[in-house]
Simulated assay, not measured.
Amino acid sequence: MDAGPTIIRMINHLRFAGADPATQRQALEGIIRDEPVLMAVLTRLRALELPDALLCSGAIYNTVWNVLTGRPALTGVKDADAVYFDDSDLSYEAEDVVIRRAQDTFADLPIPVEMRNQARVHLWFPQKFGSPYPQLHESAEMLVNFASRTHAVAARLEADDSMSIFSPFGLDDIFAFRVTPNPKLDNRKTHETKGARAKTVWPELTVVPWPV
C-alpha cells in the first residue's frame, strides 16, 4: 500500500530537472509565492527599505525540495538568510542597528531571520574562517562565492510586486536535487558538511564530491 506514493514521489520530484531556464525560474517563483513564510520575509524585507536587500540560500532551495517531495512546509529550514549592501558605514555598530530592527520586524515568524550587511563580509570572514574573502560591490555578488553552486540563489520582491531571482549558476542543480561544489574559494569543508546534513533530510539528493 505504501510503495505507490513512494514511487510517485521518486518520479515526480525531478519534474523540473533539465527544463529550460525560463521554466525553472517560473517554477521557482511559483513555489516561493505559495509559501506564506517566505512571502512574509520578502514583504517585510522590502518594507525595511534596506539597500540591495535579498532573501537567499537555504530557505529558498529547501522549500523547493520540500514542495517537490511532498514534505511539510519548512522541513529542514533552520532560518532565513537575508542580506543587504551598505558600504556607507562598515562598522559593526551600524550593522547591529539593522540586525536589531530585523529581529523586531520578523519576531513573530516560525523561523529566525538572519540579517547581514554584505559590504562587511571581507572584514570578518578571514578571522572567522581563516581564509581571505573578496570585497563585494553588491549583494548578489556574494552568490558566486558560495561553497556549493546549488545554494547560490536569492530573491527580492520589487516595489511593483514582481519578483527578481538571482542565480549565477542557474537553477538546474536545485531542481535536479544535486549539491554541486563551487571551488572558487577554499570551502570544501562547508560543502561537504552542508551536503551531508542536507542528505539526512532529503535523501533524494546527490552530493557531488569536491574536485581533487
Rank of each mutant, 00 (worst) to 15 (best):
T6L: 07
I7W: 04
I7N: 07
R9N: 04
R9D: 06
I11S: 10
H13W: 00
H13Y: 00
F16G: 01
A17L: 05
A17D: 03
A17S: 09
G18S: 03
A19Q: 11
P21C: 07
Q24E: 12
R25G: 10
L28G: 02
E29I: 05
E29C: 03
G30V: 11
I32T: 02
P36I: 08
P36G: 04
V37E: 03
M39E: 00
M39A: 00
A40N: 06
V41L: 04
R44V: 07
R44T: 09
L45T: 10
R46V: 13
L50K: 03
P51F: 08
D52I: 03
A53H: 08
L55M: 14
C56M: 10
I60S: 00
N62V: 07
V64N: 04
W65K: 08
W65T: 07
V67W: 13
G70D: 04
T75S: 10
G76A: 11
G76Y: 06
V77C: 06
D79P: 03
A80F: 12
A80K: 03
D87A: 08
D87I: 07
D89C: 02
D89H: 04
S91V: 11
S91I: 11
Y92R: 13
A94R: 14
A94S: 15
A94F: 15
D96P: 10
Q103L: 13
Q103S: 14
F106R: 03
D108M: 11
L109M: 06
I111M: 02
E114S: 08
E114G: 06
M115D: 05
M115F: 02
R116T: 08
A119H: 01
R120L: 14
V121Q: 00
V121M: 00
H122D: 04
L123D: 01
L123E: 02
W124S: 04
F125Y: 04
K128P: 00
S131F: 04
P132R: 01
P132G: 01
Q135A: 10
Q135W: 03
E138T: 15
E138H: 15
S139C: 09
E141G: 09
M142S: 08
V144N: 12
V144C: 08
F146G: 09
R149G: 15
H151I: 14
A154N: 06
R156M: 06
L157R: 00
L157N: 00
E158F: 01
E158P: 05
A159P: 05
D160Q: 02
D160P: 02
S162P: 02
M163G: 02
I165K: 05
I165Y: 03
I165E: 05
F166W: 13
S167G: 15
L171K: 05
D172V: 12
D173H: 11
F175T: 03
A176C: 14
A176V: 13
F177S: 12
V179K: 09
N182R: 15
N182G: 12
P183R: 05
K184Q: 09
K184P: 01
L185S: 09
D186N: 07
T190V: 14
H191V: 01
E192K: 02
E192H: 06
G195R: 04
R197G: 13
R197T: 14
A198N: 12
A198R: 10
T200H: 12
T200N: 14
V201C: 12
P203Y: 10
E204N: 09
L205P: 08
T206H: 03
P209V: 08
V212F: 07
